[in-house]
Design a protein around this nucleic acid. Structure first.
Lengths: 230, 230
DNA sequence: ACCCCTTATTGTAAATTTTACAATAAGCTG
DNA sequence: CAGCTTATTGTAAAATTTACAATAAGGGGT
């Protein structure tokens, strides 16, 4: 058995697709490469998985080194292992999918090969390095699918947010207009939103109420198999 | 860069979760191990990925070597890469998910380490080798989720099948009873079923009509974003 | 031929959910 | 306080989902 296993070993890595939402736009956290190949191209942040490191831990480490954040919503997206996907040899990469609040952190690009890290508008991107455009495309479809069936929008918004912000997030990600009254009725009917008691400040129009996501209620409803379809 | 990449190489493999449906039961194609570790345990069929082999191709090869089938519905499920998952060292496995028609083939267990391959009833399984019970559990949840949103049940049934067979499949996999009249109304409303013109034979009761899945119509509806929720 | 047993096939009314749609309220600015 | 901007709210019609049972058809046994 050991013989069979010893004939081919491969390098493997993780790449992170990190979504954010800011000023009504879907954002994605990318690095700018400072080395060949794909010098100056934008790329997904990623790294080699350590010998004694779990896959999930490697993805968490990449995100932490980039943002300083811990305990962030992350899940596996897909593994990309085509023979020719990397110009320098066979590299398998496990892509991860993450949602974070843009405003919560500074960017510390400790990622190797990176000149810098920055938030880019998802809907206006050049071709990325390697096969990262393909990975990103897959991640976006997953984001759309998840948003339709689970209340994950809250991961992308500040702790307190208005219903209009939330609706805008749905409209931008799902790429369709939503009726304001029907959206509010539906989203409030789940009972996942708690009024914070506060209102918007420094806006030159009627101030909107600020809501919080009620994580406790979400967990108890999820346990009994509740469905949150939008 | 080459330096960084050269410090840790890992073995990687594919494992296949192959579902079938027969005699009103959900089946799963497993091998019985003929070697340590986990001698005599049941395990998912799998193999090492070749140096010049795409991931998807490796999964297809495992399934082909086992069943002789080609062009089978397969998709990636998840990658399992915990440090301690394999007693003989760090092995990352990409799990695949597949649905096949049980009656279509013989079993040729060319899988290494296997004494034999056989169809087992999903709902009555012992603990599997390695972390394969965990992989299977994840695959089953995916099967349930997919069945609810996509008409994949046809992959598991013979080319011609009755509505009762189809309903039974839904009931067994989703683990809930479904109203007969409502089920028929809904499933027929999608227009994905074509009457074959034939009826059951050799049954000691009223013979049911045999339907076929209309793949062409499915593809054209899917293109326009149609939803097939049950 | 007929009765019995088993499964196949079909419709409808009530309840629920989704959809379409616009007037009023509130806060800031000048 | 007039004007501008965004926030908030309800209702009727349409569509979908749900609950529910009687009749049809085929084979087996007499």
């Amino acid at each position: 058995m050991q013989d069979l296993y010893s004939d081919f070993h491969s390098i493997f890595s993780v790449d992170c697709v990190i979504f954010g939402f800011d000023k009504g736009e879907l954002k994605i956290l990318l690095i700018e490469r400072g080395e060949e190949p794909y010098m100056d191209y934008l790329a997904l942040p990623g790294n080699i998985v350590g010998e004694d490191e779990d896959l999930d831990a490697a993805a968490g480490r990449v995100l932490n080194e980039l943002t300083g954040l811990n305990n962030i919503y992350m899940e596996q997206l897909h593994t990309f292992g085509e023979v020719g996907r990397h110009p320098q040899g066979r590299i398998i990469t496990v892509a991860y999918f993450s949602l974070i609040k843009v405003k919560r952190h500074e960017l510390y690009p400790k990622i190797p090969f990176a000149k810098k890290a920055e938030w880019r508008t998802f809907h206006d991107l050049p071709k990325l390095a390697f096969d990262h455009s393909i990975i990103l495309e897959k991640a976006y479809r997953k984001l759309q699918r998840k948003l339709r069936y689970e209340p994950i929008g809250f991961e992308l918004l500040p702790d307190k947010f208005t219903l209009t912000q939330l609706q805008q997030l749905y409209e931008v990600i799902l790429e369709k207009e939503i009726d304001k009254r029907n959206f509010r009725k539906k989203i409030l009917s789940y009972g996942l939103l708690t009024e914070s008691g506060e209102k918007q400040k420094n806006v030159s129009h009627r101030a909107a109420r600020l809501y919080r996501f009620n994580k406790r209620r979400y967990n108890s409803l999820r346990k009994i198999g509740f469905n949150f379809e939008i």
